[in-house]
């Protein structure tokens, strides 16, 4: 077939990719290894790819002392990710479509209206004011979703995709058939944009999954904490205690109860877990030839 690379090139490219993959994988394996290492051995020998002394203590510790906390955080994270992603997809896809239409006169205005907000902002404090006092979002699960459901970067990616992928003929024929804009959008444009939607779905989902900023600013109730914020708290508490203990000598004893390095790495693995699989899950929408199918059909 003339549209594939030769066998030799295939081997070379595979090797190149495998090297990259190893580079990415090794540190992850390291995290995994440390999370299964006994604490004393960690202290004495440091990190190693093969645990000095194998131990499931970090995971056991987390499961025993904080199982309900972790499960709860999983629940919260999953809810935020699913709902947040769906809402974002809708908002982004909708705004980006008219932007991609060349025939719209005030297009530039709306582009600029969006882009300006990507560069300039009033800052964290007024935003916090709007979220807490104007919208009343503090300590609510929606606090972790709503402030993130629109993202300029994704809008522009989507717009570019629409522009370069949706053939004019498709829109033309729909118009001739008398279809309204919304109908064209939902029944034609979106199905043709599945790769872009899948892409943005991946990014948004990962964004919500990894987010610790919204919980940090707007959530105080530990029952509403998501996974990333949980680990953020652990990490920053340890750092802060170390920093402040010179001035506030009483603090240092709190370090004794702080999770060890093995436990922190176990936390990191747990946090990373499921979301890594989102790409394989959405990957089927990246299949080539989707466009052709739709037009011919």
């Amino acid at each position: 077939m003339g549209t594939s690379i030769s066998r030799t090139t295939n081997v070379i490219v595979n090797v190149f990719l495998i090297v990259l993959v190893l580079l990415c994988l090794l540190p992850i394996v390291l995290v995994l290894s440390v999370s299964f290492t006994d604490e004393t051995s960690l202290l004495n020998q440091g990190y190693s790819f093969f645990p000095g002394k194998f131990s499931i203590e970090p995971y056991r510790f987390l499961m025993e002392t904080n199982l309900s906390g972790i499960l709860n955080a999983y629940k919260i994270t999953i809810f935020n990710t699913v709902v947040g992603t769906l809402l974002t997809l809708l908002m982004v896809a909708l705004y980006a479509y008219p932007l991609s239409r060349r025939d719209l006169k005030y297009n530039n205005f709306f582009t600029f209206f969006l882009y300006f907000t990507m560069l300039f902002g009033g800052g964290m404090v007024p935003w916090y004011l709007v979220c807490t006092q104007v919208l009343g979002l503090k300590d609510s699960i929606w606090a972790m979703i709503l402030p993130s459901i629109f993202n300029g970067f994704f809008v522009f990616v989507m717009r570019t995709f629409y522009k370069s992928t949706i053939p004019i003929e498709v829109l033309e024929s729909a118009k001739i058939d008398g279809a309204g804009e919304y109908r064209i959008f939902f029944q034609l444009v979106l199905p043709l944009s599945l790769p872009a939607i899948a892409t943005i779905a991946i990014f948004t989902a990962v964004g919500f999954w990894n987010d610790y900023w919204l919980p940090l600013m707007l959530i105080n109730d530990p029952k509403l904490s998501n996974l990333q914020y949980m680990i953020y708290r652990i990490m920053t508490n340890i750092q802060a205690i170390r920093e402040y203990s010179q001035d506030a000598s009483g603090i240092a004893t709190s370090l004794a109860n702080a999770p060890s390095e093995g436990i922190r790495m176990a936390m990191a693995m747990i946090t990373m877990g499921p979301i890594v699989l989102i790409y394989p899950f959405l990957q089927k929408y990246f299949v080539k030839g989707l466009t052709i199918g739709a037009i011919k059909g």
Partner: peptide, 8 residues
């Protein structure tokens, strides 16, 4: 939390 104190 002490680590989040200043920001919050």
């Amino acid at each position: 939390d002490v680590g989040s104190w200043d920001t919050k």
